[in-house]
């Protein structure tokens, strides 16, 4: 028998003996309802959730701007560009990010299959859209399908995310439901919940940002 057969047979054999009863909820429990009851509260209104997202994201050292227009996004990015002395910017094929990038006045690397990794590695920042934001945790959800692949959100030192108001999901459950619905039957090869810039505490538990990935994560919501 191959290992697959061996393992499946062992599992089947093992489970013939019923588990010793645990103090565990009953079969009729409504799990999604229970999850809602136990997880951190998210409030009722959009404003409450926006405030919660801001608090959670900032606590994990992400920078968050709720703005009224893409003009404001561009203005703020221009300031960051000067402060950080950007050389070039990476983005992905997307109307919104491309229109923003075009107004920055720097070389743009638009990532498509077969991009040059050396060029990409030199980019000062990346600008992407997202699948959604999560108020409950302050997370940004990106995917390989709709936000430019796997590396764009993790290789450059500064990741900038452009999100729309209607993309703010209240809870983790809502975000996962959204992902499932959006990609039903055709799951992207990667979906990532990003919360704050890359971080480590591996040396004496001292927080250091930019362990491997972005040192800064900036989120715009308009």
């Amino acid at each position: 028998m191959n290992d697959r057969g061996t393992i499946l047979a062992s599992i089947q054999e093992a489970l013939k003996k019923p588990s010793v009863k645990q103090d565990i909820y009953k079969a009729e429990d409504n799990i999604s309802e229970l999850i809602k009851q136990v997880m951190p509260p998210v409030g009722e209104s959009f404003d409450e959730r926006l405030a919660l997202f801001r608090k959670n994201a900032q606590e994990l050292k992400a920078e968050f701007y709720a703005v009224n227009s893409t003009d404001e996004v561009v203005q703020t990015i221009l300031k960051i560009k000067d402060a950080e002395q950007w050389k070039s910017v990476a983005t992905h094929p997307n109307e919104l990010t491309e229109s923003i990038c075009n107004r920055i006045g720097l070389p743009i690397l638009k990532l498509t299959a077969g991009y040059d990794i050396t060029e990409f590695e030199k980019c000062s920042a990346s600008i992407t859209v997202c699948d959604c934001l999560v108020a409950q945790t302050g997370s940004v959800v990106v995917s390989s399908a709709s936000t430019g692949g796997r590396a764009i959100s993790v290789l450059p030192p500064h990741h900038i995310v452009i999100a729309k108001k209607e993309q703010l999901a209240p809870t983790m459950s809502d975000a996962i439901a959204l992902v499932r619905k959006k990609y039903n039957g055709n799951f992207p090869s990667m979906v990532s919940f990003i919360t704050g810039p890359s971080r480590t505490g591996d040396i004496e538990r001292i927080l250091v940002l930019g362990a491997h990935g972005p040192k800064r994560l900036t989120i715009f919501l308009f």
Partner: peptide, 9 residues
């Protein structure tokens, strides 16, 4: 409350 990256492959 949540880790930096939770990724589904």
């Amino acid at each position: 409350l949540i880790s930096g990256y939770n990724t589904f492959y």
